[in-house]
């Protein structure tokens, strides 16, 4: 994995190499599958980071949630800096931090542990789970995500009477299935925090839970 170009891959992704360096690295990438794969992973991380904040809830719960996500009136707004560009620079070791940042942006681990509900009705993800590492929730939770999830859960709970028992059971089963996926991804990440696939997979699962909760609360509101 380590070669002379390893530390420059992030600069390459950020287009910060000189033309000469870039041409040399292009030539290297043509023959080094490992570096080409790392480039693709870095781009995937950057793309996901750019995508993260662009999904407001579709339900009308958003007005209540948005101030909490953005800080609301209780939080002093950050000054606006004109012409600032959002840059993403990762050295390979920083990929670990980028992965953790993605986890923090997506959040939800603590909620899963605390409010994961009864055991899922879904079959176990694997008959024998080789992962034995203890669950370490500290440091990967995102309070904003947790609050959004908690708000949606609360809204869903408050509207249970508007849904019939079958619908509630199905929604809970599917939420439990997602929770199980989140939990398994998180446990795997605890033992392999730099794993890009696991970081992306966990982020996807958390987004999916958020999306399902939004849809469920929309059902409570009488919308499909």
């Amino acid at each position: 994995m380590a070669d002379n170009w390893t530390e420059r891959l992030s600069d390459y992704v950020d287009d910060e190499l000189t033309p000469g360096e870039r041409a040399a690295l292009d030539a290297h990438l043509a023959s080094c599958r490992e570096c080409a794969g790392t480039i693709a992973d870095l781009r995937a991380v950057v793309d996901r980071a750019r995508e993260l904040p662009v999904r407001p809830p579709a339900a009308d719960l958003w007005p209540g949630i948005e101030p909490r996500l953005t800080g609301g009136s209780q939080t002093r707004p950050l000054p606006f800096h004109a012409h600032t560009t959002r840059k993403f620079a990762f050295t390979l070791p920083q990929l670990v931090a980028a992965g953790l940042a993605l986890m923090v942006m997506s959040g939800g681990g603590v909620w899963v542990l605390q409010h994961g509900g009864p055991a899922t009705e879904m079959p176990p993800v694997a008959a024998s789970d080789p992962i034995r590492e203890p669950v370490v929730p500290a440091g990967i939770a995102d309070p904003r995500y947790d609050e959004a999830i908690a708000d949606l859960q609360q809204a869903l709970e408050a509207g249970r009477a508007e849904l019939d028992a079958t619908t509630i059971r199905i929604l809970e089963a599917n939420l439990s299935a997602i929770d199980a996926a989140i939990e398994q991804s998180r446990r795997a990440l605890a033992g392999d925090p730099a794993n890009v696939y696991l970081n992306n997979h966990l982020a996807d699962a958390r987004q999916r839970k958020l999306a399902l909760l939004r849809r469920a609360t929309a059902l409570v509101g009488g919308k499909t």
Partner: peptide
């Protein structure tokens, strides 16, 4: 042999 533990295989 490479396709395990989330490792990228191309």
């Amino acid at each position: 042999q490479d396709a395990r533990r989330g490792r990228r295989v191309t």
